[in-house]
Amino acid sequence: MSFQNLPPLNALRYFEAAARKGSFTSAAEELHLTQSAVSQQIRNLETFIGAALFRRSTTTIELTDVGKAYFGVVSKALERIDIATALAKAAPGTKRIEQICLSASPSFVHLWLVKRLSKFHREVRSVQLSLNVTRHYVDFEAENVDMAIRHGNGEWPGLQAELLMKDRIVAVCSPRILQGRRQPRGLAEIGNHPIIEDRVHRYWTRYARFVGGDIDVRNAILYDDSGVIVEAAINEQGIAMARASLAASAISRGHLVELFEAKFSETLGYYVVFPAAHALRKNVARVSKWLKLEAARERG
């Protein structure tokens, strides 16, 4: 079967809970989501179907005739899937493996995480790690993501943040740029070197402001991806302000030289984040613990 009429399965869970509870708010509490997230998912389901499933007033919701018929089928189907899954999980020889979806930026995945995945799956046997590689901050209420790795100061409203590793911002360049030239040790010594600037975070500009200096970035080469900035520096495009965590491998291999550190934040780093309700989930905690241990091993 092609299942051409199959709707998003998460939306079915939200619809079933709201119809059973007779309330978007009660459904949201059961699912550990916000009322607006449940409401939006149900509206998406109604758009997919092309018919209203609920009659809404300011204080109540009520199933339409289409909604009543749909709920009768959906609730039984979800119940049968739940029972079948429980039986499958209890079958002799079945391994209890939970899939955990981890969201992270392309630069972090490419330069730090991906080379550690085989080790993760050797050491954390009962978890299948699924990666959501994206540059935007995922919406935990609307997207099927369990946890994420974010770079910042550790403050994201509504989310629990656990420090993975503090990060330094360092000036780096290819050693070939420095051939026959004195290695610059600060902003005043950058001189006529080409500059690679982060279009989003403006690390050169922030560093100049912090030390009370001045730098002309009008002709800087601009990128909006931290991993691309590291690659650009390796390829001799100029001197970059880069995240030390992402540049570490290239520095250790001699592809980059660290010139100096730009100290302007004590809280900057990578954090493992997830909704507070997910902290109770055993495998979310296990993934977070493994990531933090791996980062600690790297620090020595």
Rank of each mutant, 00 (worst) to 15 (best):
G227E: 00
A240L: 00
F260C: 03
T134P: 00
Y207Q: 10
F24Q: 01
A17Q: 15
G154F: 13
V66G: 07
K282R: 15
I195F: 01
K21M: 07
L293T: 03
L178F: 08
S75K: 15
M147E: 04
D214L: 07
P8G: 07
R243V: 01
A220R: 02
R80N: 05
E141S: 13
K292N: 11
L102Q: 00
L256R: 07
W156K: 02
M241E: 06
F140S: 05
G212S: 09
A232H: 04
G300Y: 09
I97Y: 08
I177E: 04
R206V: 00
N153C: 12
S2E: 08
V124P: 06
E155A: 13
L178P: 02
Y223V: 05
V127H: 09
A18V: 09
R150M: 08
R55E: 10
F48W: 12
V272S: 06
A295M: 06
I49V: 10
S75R: 15
I239N: 04
A161F: 09
C173H: 07
E236V: 06
I42E: 11
E79P: 06
F260L: 07
S26Q: 15
A77V: 11
A77L: 14
E231Y: 15
V211M: 11
A88P: 07
E79V: 00
R20G: 03
S2V: 00
N132W: 13
P8A: 13
V145F: 07
L9F: 01
R55V: 05
S26D: 14
A220F: 05
A11Q: 12
L31H: 06
E143A: 04
A88E: 10
R43K: 07
A84S: 15
F54Y: 10
I234D: 02
N283G: 02
Y270V: 01
E231F: 04
I177P: 01
I169L: 12
P7L: 03
H255N: 10
R20F: 09
M241C: 05
G180N: 11
A84E: 15
N144E: 13
A11N: 14
A86Q: 13
A88S: 14
E258T: 03
L53W: 04
L163P: 00
A86Y: 01
K166V: 03
P157T: 08
K21I: 02
E261T: 15
T58K: 12
C173M: 07
G154I: 08
